[in-house]
Design a binder for these strands. Structure first.
Lengths: 258, 258
DNA sequence: CTAGAACTTGACGCAGCGTCAATGTCAAGG
DNA sequence: CCTTGACATTGACGCTGCGTCAAGTTCTAG
């Protein structure tokens, strides 16, 4: 009239380990222990087990469950107390959630602000992450420090240079010049140097941007409207990209890094 | 230009133990370790610590925090993932809360049902708990099993006996009999026997209700209108109580249990 | 008789520190 | 110079509820 430990484990949809644990903590003893040391449980034990599991599903701790089941504590009271605790947890969770939502909002705004102020729409760090297979602001801190260390005059000069370069690209594209021509390659060179000055650019600080990065960037200028807009639209961006590809073919070797 | 471990602990409103813990898990190393082995932290470490504590307040694990701070993972991404987790937790909590509210409701209804059907307003188990200093349905399961195992005929007989007894009490009280008189003591004896048949009554199954329980019960019949009503009001209940007190003086010894 | 399934006890692991315990160091006062 | 008390160190256990080996018995079917 009794079952082995596996049997009730299956009957109650739990594990034998759990049953042995309940045994060691004195929450549910086997109804019988064979001469071989095996645990056997009868129907009363099964009922008790199911009550235990029910209460555990409600989130009560084993100690509280024991007090309730061993009739030392009123079940309604215990549940009500637990309910209070759960409600507090809910409040705490809600606060954390709101807090995180705010933090994310702030981060997003900050990112956008950076993107606008720093590169006038060229968030190259974002692209770097895309190249690496994940979006984000990994190099954010570096870039931030680099940018904020600049004086207002330097910042203005930097932005000016960036806009100037974009304008020349656009003009060259509109004049119908060839990407592989002299003007196109001259601009590509300036673009390269400009990138080399941005911390967070792969290869920056050494010999300049890597070939992969440089070419990938060109592709992105075409693919992403927000970047293309800086060169007078997709047509302009295509000119830029083509010039960059030619430039990298002529001057850059494939990097060796994986 | 650095602080001792206690100093930053106070500055960041945490404990030195936490700081050493962060050291051992490699989350925040001291900026310097003196020849004496003391840990010293500089301002950079303080900033990092504050960031750690902020993220921990948001509920992130130390591992996640390390990944975020060490810039291997995008902060927005990490926070968003954590947000998902928190929202799931919120749902789980809400479910548990509803579940418990339902359970409590069910218990309350069941209790009321029991009280009405079983004792016609005499929830003696509730009183037992009161005597023990806490309310509840501790003996509920036993009582329930005991009651539901009875056949309908038995149930009817039981309720009849109970009502009969109450009616006789009421009649005796209205006739102005003395509690210590023959009739009063005879009724008190029947009351005693009746209680002895209820599982959950302290002493039931052995020699009958304990003296403390029996006397306390009499007091409650007077104090609680719901019980008093069964004996024709407070006057009737007072008669019952007095008879019970006399009975217990004559026949019951103080129990030895603590 | 043997393989394999099921059982046993024992112990580590996890998350994030709190909390001793045993011992060493530093600064101030007698 | 010594003492005292505050503060430091490393080391280790505790808490919650089991999951997950590990090493050794026992049962069961072929």
């Amino acid at each position: 009239m009794d079952w082995s430990i596996q049997d009730i484990a299956r009957l109650a949809n739990t594990t034998s380990r759990t049953l042995r644990h309940y045994g060691t903590v004195g929450l549910l003893e086997p109804s019988r222990i064979g001469a071989n040391g095996y645990r056997y449980y009868d129907e009363r034990a099964l009922v008790r087990l199911q009550r235990i599991l029910m209460l555990r599903d409600l989130g009560l701790g084993l100690l509280a469950i024991r007090e309730v089941i061993d009739e030392q504590t009123d079940e309604t009271r215990a549940l009500a107390a637990h309910l209070d605790w759960l409600r507090q947890e809910r409040v705490r969770l809600a606060r954390q959630i709101r807090s995180i939502e705010n933090t994310i909002d702030t981060l997003d705004r900050k990112e956008q602000l950076m993107a606008e102020q720093m590169f006038d729409g060229f968030d190259h760090t974002a692209h770097r992450d895309e190249v690496e297979g994940r979006w984000g602001k990994a190099a954010y801190a570096d870039g931030d420090a680099w940018w904020t260390r600049k004086s207002p005059a330097e910042k203005a000069a930097w932005q000016n240079e960036q806009r100037q370069l974009a304008a020349e690209w656009q003009a060259a594209a509109e004049r119908g010049l060839a990407p592989e021509g002299e003007e196109g390659q001259r601009l590509a060179g300036r673009q390269f140097d400009w990138l080399a000055g941005i911390p967070g650019t792969p290869g920056a600080g050494t010999t300049g941007p890597t070939r992969e990065y440089f070419v990938g960037l060109g592709e992105m200028y075409v693919a992403d409207e927000r970047f293309a807009a800086n060169f007078g639209g997709v047509r302009g961006a295509e000119f830029v990209r083509d010039a960059m590809v030619v430039y990298s073919d002529r001057h850059l070797r494939p990097s060796q890094e994986t």
